[in-house]
Each structure stands twice: as structure tokens, then as C-alpha cells.
Amino acid sequence: MGVLDGRVAIITGAGRGIGREHALLFAREGASVVVNDLGGGNDGSGSDAGPAQQVADEIVAAGGKAVANTDNVADWKGAAALVDQAVDAFGGLDLLINNAGILRDGFIANLDESQWDDVIAVHLKGHMATMRHAAAYWKDQAKSGKTVTAAIVNTASASGTFMPNAGQVNYGAAKAGIAAMTLVAAQELERYGVRANAIAPIARTRLTLATPGMGAIFAQEVEEGEFDAFSPANISPLVAYLSTEKCPHTGKLFAVQGGAISLLEGWHAVKTTETDGPWTIGDVGDRLGAWA
């Protein structure tokens, strides 16, 4: 008996890296998995049906249930087709794991419009598009009187939350948006029996190996038998737990890397100054000058 027996999961970006580890673990734990991956390059260019199909084939060969999907999650109709495929193939949908992403790094003063648009589309719109169509399905299920115990797990990033990274204004903005979007989803979808959480993972993937200043860290070799703190497999148990039917968490953001899991909280006041009357620029300067 697996902890996800009978659950139907969509996992985006599941052809490689963290998403692949999610798909393999979910299948081992009894879930039926729709393995979504456009199969493009790090920058989102091109497409290749191979990665998604290879993971689906690996799951089926091991006795699990999986189908491949190569729809573009940044396309509204593609996201709808992805949800439809899960329902058609396995009779329903219980879990949406948004993991797909690309990198098109650049510094603000030199960033091309396409670098901004492409990253925002795949990450932020890609998360929203799949959530929108999955939420519509779960809403209909709940309205028809069926009991829904669904879960969404979105993928934010340290870059967009607690560890901003120069050269990733597009990626950081998208990931911060995903974190905020998850909190809204948790509030909106609870009435339909849906929980929503997000993770900020740190692991060795194609994207992190390509991140300036970080590739050398993630590429460090680990001796056989030693714990690999940057293995993407370290991320998936948390995501599987958040996907279990009786998990109590919703509206949370968890940082996860190696053997560490942290609960993160958002913006909060650390200092406050007040006035009894209208502010003047001088008053503001005097008060806030001490905070610099």
C-alpha cells in the first residue's frame, strides 16, 4: 500500500530533474501519473516528446500507471487539454504538481523583452493556467455533491523568496508571484476541498547547473554511499506528503534542500513609526534615516 494509492496526479516538467523524481516517487506510492513535459531547452526553446515518454515508460515498466503529455502549460488551451487527459485516462484528478520552468537570465539594464515574457509565461502563467482548469474541474465535482480531497503543490524558489539572485529579475519575480498566488489559491479553493501549498527547492537540475555562480556548487561530486545533499530526489518526499489525502497543511511555503525543510513566512513588519498628524518629508527622513 502506498500513501498515494488511487490518487491521480498531473506533474508538469516531469521529464527531467525534480519533476522526474516526483513522477517516479508518486508512481511507486500508488498514484496514476500524467507526466507532462514539453521537452524544450533550458531557455524554453524547442520541444521533444522523448523526456515525458521515457519517464512514463519507466513507470509502466516498473508496474505503475502513467501516460505522457507534451502540452505547453503556458498555453491556456494546452493546460485545459492536460487536465482533460488526466480525467480521460484515469477517471479523475486529485493532484496538480506544478514544476515546469525555464531560465533566461539577464541583468535588468540589458534584459530583452522576450527574456522577461518567456520566463513569466512558463512559470507564472504556466502555474496559473493549470490551476485554473484543475480548479474548474474540482469546483464542478464539489458542486455535484462529490467529496473532493485534492491538492496543489506549486514550485516557487529561494530566488523569489528569501535569497534574491542578481541576474534573475524575471525568474525571481515569477517565483515570488507563484508563492503569493498559492496563498490566494489556498483561500479560494478550500471551499471545494482543495489544499494549495508551495515549495522553494534547492537541488541539482539543468537550471541550477546553468545558473551563474551556482553551477560549480551543484556540480560537486559525491562519493558513492555518501548523502547527496543536492540530489533532486530529496525534494519529492515533501511534495508527496503534501499530496496525501489527510495532510493538514494549506497556504504554506516550505523551503527544502538536502536534509532540511523550513516553513517560510512572507513580508511582515519589523519596525514601525507613527505620527499624530500629516507626514512631512523631513519627518519621514528623520524617522527612517535611523533604519538605513
Rank of each mutant, 00 (worst) to 15 (best):
G282Q: 10
W138L: 10
T12R: 08
G266V: 04
G91C: 06
L124Q: 11
V284R: 07
V55Q: 06
K252N: 11
N110W: 13
G145F: 08
D57W: 01
D5C: 02
L183F: 14
I217Q: 05
G177P: 01
R132C: 04
A68P: 00
D57H: 07
Q141P: 02
P248W: 13
V55R: 05
V119W: 11
L24G: 08
E224M: 11
V35I: 07
D105C: 03
P51E: 04
D118S: 13
S243G: 07
A150K: 04
M163K: 15
T149P: 00
A9K: 01
R287N: 08
A185H: 09
E190S: 14
A260H: 14
Y241P: 00
E190T: 09
G225T: 07
A173L: 01
I235R: 02
A151T: 09
V83M: 09
R204I: 10
L264T: 09
G277V: 01
G106C: 08
I102Q: 02
G46M: 11
R206E: 05
Q54L: 08
A151L: 02
G91A: 12
A233M: 05
T182P: 00
T273D: 14
T208H: 05
A260V: 15
V33M: 05
F230Y: 13
T244Y: 06
Q53D: 07
L4P: 02
T275E: 12
V119G: 02
A14H: 13
S114K: 15
P278F: 11
L96Q: 11
L189C: 08
V8G: 00
D105Y: 07
A142S: 15
D283T: 15
Q53K: 13
A134G: 12
L111Q: 08
G277W: 04
Q115V: 01
I261A: 11
